[in-house]
Write a protein that binds this DNA or RNA. Structure first.
Lengths: 110, 110
DNA sequence: TCATTATATCGTAATATTGCGATCTATAGA
DNA sequence: TCTATAGATCGCAATATTACGATATAATGA
């Protein structure tokens, strides 16, 4: 009780759920959108852009990294975070059948 | 503390996060995929397809409904759940710039 | 070497999620 | 009306997430 029963679901379902979960917080969405905007790799100045304390941002970055959505590379004194295109492609592929199937439905299915 | 500071983020960021969060559990992904598969509206037989008790499934359905990803219509004695194409279109639109931007990045950005 | 800067980690409090047994509600059918 | 069935809701226990102050780590520059 309380713990998600991941073992009862398929690898694919768990994979999609894990990626979606990583995006399931506005701070993490904001981080992603910031990385998109600055285009070049931004380092820890992400902290300045968010209304959260440094340890909290660090924790969110860690979760995004664990999910594979971003990478972090040591750049001298600081860390360079950027989006990982591989994982985003994967997420798109995982969601594509859902988008296609769901939007093909008639609005008043029931 | 412990409560997400949603008010500090944009409406768009919160909207995307809420949809992603709703998909952030394998059971809910499984429900969505089942609804996609049966194509016609399936009712409460979803419970039989999942390795979870009826109250738990009901709760997951509620969350998907709150997020707007599915609709539930009373059908005599039972309830007919189906995907809501509007919300799926919206989610695709919200994610599209991310996919486009992220996959356009060179792999070795750092 | 020592101070500074950048970031991660620890520890902890508040809150949210997950899961389910028990129970409630509402419709269907006898 | 009575009973059965489908779902929702309640209440609780276990666990996970969110947030942050304090502190640790590691590279930079004086």
């Amino acid at each position: 009780m309380g713990a998600t029963k991941t073992e009862h679901f398929s690898k694919r379902q768990n994979e999609l759920a894990a990626l979606a979960k990583a995006l399931g917080h506005p701070a993490r969405v904001a981080i992603i959108e910031h990385l998109l905007k600055v285009d070049s790799c931004i380092c820890g100045s992400i902290v300045d852009k968010l209304p959260l304390a440094q340890p909290t941002v660090s924790q969110h970055l860690k979760e995004l990294k664990n999910a594979g959505l971003i990478t972090g590379t040591i750049e001298g004194n600081s860390i360079c975070y950027c989006l990982d295109p591989k994982t985003w492609t994967r997420l798109r592929d995982l969601l594509d059948p859902h988008f296609t199937g769901a939007t093909a439905k008639k609005a008043e299915c029931c």
